[in-house]
Design a binder for these strands. Structure first.
Lengths: 205, 205
DNA sequence: CCAATAAATGAATGACGTTCATTTATCTCA
DNA sequence: TGAGATAAATGAACGTCATTCATTTATTGG
């Protein structure tokens, strides 16, 4: 039969659906409809919805910019990588719980990223044993920050309980006259600097 | 009618169900069954399953140990807090996406924690404007690390693609003779030290 | 003691992911 | 050319969920 479907097409359609309707809109039925096909047809090319999510994840991973590790100083490369990584997954937080548990064996794009990052760390003079834990720590921070980037601006509005939390409320207000000023970007920058400085100190040369 | 149910009872039952069957096992039907009640009865006390999750989240927050902020040096207090926080939510990662978006207005326990942590930062000499971003950065790291703690031991097994990722594969192997040695705890400790050092440098006194 | 109210029931609904027997189109090879 | 073999799409059906709602049941306050 004329192959209307394949994994690449499914992945592309899933990404478009996600960008238009969000992850709630990503159902097998909607995905099939956007491809002009019956839902059950998808299962000839994909074993489950979870596999669709894995395909999307791999596609996104290939868009993370780790190029700096072969051209920039380590600090700059990490910064560029981290910003790119967070930026992409901030709009795909439902995938984070998938990534965190997905063995790299099945994820060539992810593996390629790790290889490049590892090379960058080696070139910067990190002892081999420190590299993986450092990457894991940075990734944890990036994933957490991706969630954070979606927090509503008024998340720290203490509301009716402001009186019982004076120090916290004052600290929130100190960030600006507007109450709703969630410092996600500032926080990301500060924490990333701290991590880069702290981890960077592990280098030997 | 005799009130068989209330929010505290529902929360406790939900927590027990989660610990026994995991988050997949937490369905409104199962929750009702464990309380000896029809599923629809729950909706007299709770507006949705999401509210159940919020109740659970608040309960867990009250178990996070932030006591060190009034008794220990700042570095120690942060460490104790972070370990406790990660330890609890590592077994409740499905809640992380809820927390990250939940305004503190509705979450008195969370607010109480923030107040105590803020006080600790003030006492340690942090400028007021740096405190919230620092907490946000630490929390991001903690949440990401909680996901990480659930990674399978062989997550970094590059498998068939080992040849094309020599540096990464070697770095993974350097962690130990056993291949399956995911350094989640080591990574958490390293990253936390880096953050504590880096953020600690923001103190003025 | 009656009326108001809070709470529990059970049946029904609408998504959703997934399965499966069946049909349809294309490819291979004699 | 024609006959399997095969890959792919279909539509009906299932089971699981969360959620709603009309109804019933028990309790409480005046």
């Amino acid at each position: 039969m004329a192959a209307v479907l394949d994994q690449d097409g499914i992945t592309a359609a899933a990404l478009e659906l996600i960008s238009k309707k969000g992850y709630d809109g990503l159902t097998m039925a909607a995905l099939a409809r956007s491809l002009g096909v019956a839902p059950s047809a998808l299962y000839n090319h994909v074993s489950s919805k979870d596999e669709v999510l894995k395909l999307v994840e791999e596609d996104l991973m290939s868009k993370v910019d780790f190029g700096g590790f072969s051209t920039l100083p380590w600090e700059e490369a990490v910064r560029q990588w981290a910003y790119s990584y967070r930026g992409i997954f901030a709009r795909h937080t439902p995938l984070i719980s998938v990534i965190a548990v997905l063995p790299v064996t099945d994820a060539p794009q992810t593996l390629a990223m790790y290889e490049a990052v590892t090379e960058g760390f080696l070139r910067a003079g990190f002892p081999e044993k420190q590299i993986i834990p450092s990457i894991v720590a940075l990734e944890a921070y990036i994933f957490g920050a991706a969630f954070d980037a979606n927090a509503p601006a008024d998340i720290f509005d203490s509301g009716r309980l402001a009186d019982s939390t004076p120090h916290f409320t004052s600290a929130v207000r100190s960030l600006g006259p507007e109450r709703n000023n969630y410092p996600s970007d500032l926080a990301f920058s500060m924490g990333l600097d701290a991590l880069i400085t702290g981890l960077g100190a592990l280098r030997v040369s």
